[in-house]
Amino acid sequence: MKAIIPLAFLLAILPMFVPSAYLYLIGLALLFAVLVASWDLMVGYTGQVNLGHTTFVGLGAYTAAILQLPARIGAAFDVHPIVAVILAGVLSAFFGLAIGLLTLRLKGYYFSLVTAILPLVFMQKVFVWRGVFGGEEGFSIPSEKILVATTLEKYYVAAIFAIISLGVIYAILRSKIGLRFKAVRDSEELAEALGIDTTKYKILAFVLSSFFAGVAGAIFVNYRMTVAPDLYDVPLMLLIILSAVIGGLGTLWGPFLMGIIVYLAKNWWLTAFRFGIVNEEIILYAILIAVAILMPRGVYNEVKEKLRRFAKS
């Protein structure tokens, strides 16, 4: 936890060294890292494999976008962007609750399968009601209705949000609730024997995780000023899963940092490696497959283990 302070410090002084085009990407990477960390909250700590995290990202994104631009639904009210962002999180959490109630009482693979098709259902909504949601191209929000305008301000919004989210998730996991999450993950039978209502805690984790996803989605929209169905889509989901798993499920810091690394690698560092039938995505997926097979507990855990052994000897 102590590492949050130097992280905050590093993020605060980063704009002094990094040009704005990259700062823009780093801000996006931080938002993405929150998605990964919040996914880890559900999957890494309660052991329920949620394949539909982007449902809540997209839901939050579209909610905020429409609240900030109510003309899309023919309404005329004024919502402060901050309120819109928070309401987006609340709505996502609410949907998380409904879906959790429906699916988390089932054991086994059904939760994964249902959550896998959820984003697609929500994505179809965007196409079916194009007039409101803008269909494939989405719609953009004029700069005067956006949270903050310049790249530097956007970066700081993303950084502050990332730090707060990380801190809050960490606090939750350190609390009694967090311990119960882990009990559910490690042995559901044992947890039940101890009198823990496992379904309740699974749903709670799902709701919390959906809340962060929704807020992050809403900030994404304010960050890039357009909302589009890519926020619901499978590639984003996969990137979240890959970052979390490679980072090390159930370690919070591992997924968070790996989220930053993977996002920047995909959209920046690896873009130079593009020739013939190889591009940055192919390299990334190949690395990830290799890591998943060779270090199934995640890079974070494996490296930590190695370092510990090295320190002992």
Binding site: P19, A21, L25, G138, R224, N267
Partner: peptide
């Protein structure tokens, strides 16, 4: 869209 914006900024500024 996110990549498009980042790439535009890269081309324009860097």
């Amino acid at each position: 869209p996110s990549v498009g914006v980042a790439e535009f900024k890269r081309l324009a500024t860097l």
